[in-house]
Simulated assay, not measured.
Amino acid sequence: MTQPPASLTAVPVRHYGRWITAALAVAATVWLVVTLAASPALEPATVGHYLTQDFILAGVRTTLILTAVAMVLGATGGIVLAVMRLSDNPVLKALAAAFVWLFRGTPLLVQIVFFGFLGALLPRITVRVPLTGTILFDKPTSLVITGTVAAVLALSLNEMAYAAEIVRGGILAVDKGQTEAAHALGMTSAQTLRRIVLPQAMRVIVPPMGNEVITMLKSTALVSVIAGRDLMTAVQGVYAQNYKVIPLLAVAAIWYLALVSVLSIVQILLERRFGRGHHVHTGGAPR
Rank of each mutant, 00 (worst) to 15 (best):
V80H: 03
A82D: 08
A82C: 03
V83I: 07
M84L: 00
R85V: 12
R85K: 12
R85E: 06
R85C: 04
S87G: 03
S87D: 15
N89E: 12
P90V: 02
P90L: 00
V91N: 12
K93D: 13
K93G: 08
K93E: 11
K93V: 02
A94S: 08
A94W: 05
L95H: 01
L95G: 01
A98I: 01
F99V: 02
F99N: 00
V100K: 00
W101M: 10
L102P: 11
F103A: 07
R104A: 03
R104Y: 12
G105I: 09
T106G: 01
L108M: 13
L108D: 15
L108R: 12
L109C: 10
L109R: 05
V110M: 13
Q111R: 02
Q111A: 10
I112M: 08
I112D: 03
V113A: 05
F114V: 08
F114R: 01
F114G: 06
F114W: 03
F115V: 01
L118C: 06
G119R: 11
A120I: 09
L121F: 15
L121S: 11
L122A: 09
L122R: 02
P123Y: 03
P123F: 04
P123G: 08
P123K: 00
R124Y: 14
R124A: 14
R124W: 03
I125P: 10
V127P: 15
V127L: 09
R128Q: 11
V129R: 02
V129F: 00
P130W: 03
P130Y: 05
L131W: 14
T132D: 11
T132Q: 08
G133I: 09
T134Y: 15
T134M: 15
T134D: 15
T134G: 14
I135R: 15
L136V: 05
L136Y: 02
F137P: 02
D138M: 07
D138W: 07
D138Y: 04
P140W: 06
T141W: 05
T141E: 13
S142W: 15
L143V: 10
L143R: 12
I145G: 14
T146F: 09
T146L: 13
G147V: 01
T148V: 14
V149C: 09
A150F: 00
A151M: 07
A151V: 01
A151I: 06
A151E: 06
V152T: 04
V152L: 14
V152K: 00
L153F: 15
A154L: 11
A154C: 06
A154M: 09
L155M: 06
L155N: 03
S156C: 09
N158M: 07
N158Q: 09
N158D: 13
E159N: 12
E159S: 11
M160S: 11
A161V: 09
A161S: 15
Y162Q: 14
A163W: 03
A164H: 05
E165Q: 04
E165A: 02
I166H: 12
I166Q: 07
V167A: 08
V167D: 08
R168K: 14
R168T: 10
G169Y: 10
G170Y: 13
I171N: 10
I171D: 13
L172R: 09
L172Q: 13
V174P: 01
V174E: 06
D175A: 10
K176L: 12
K176N: 15
G177H: 08
G177M: 02
G177D: 09
T179M: 11
A182Q: 10
H183F: 13
A184H: 04
M187N: 04
T188C: 05
T188A: 00
T188N: 04
S189A: 10
A190C: 06
A190R: 07
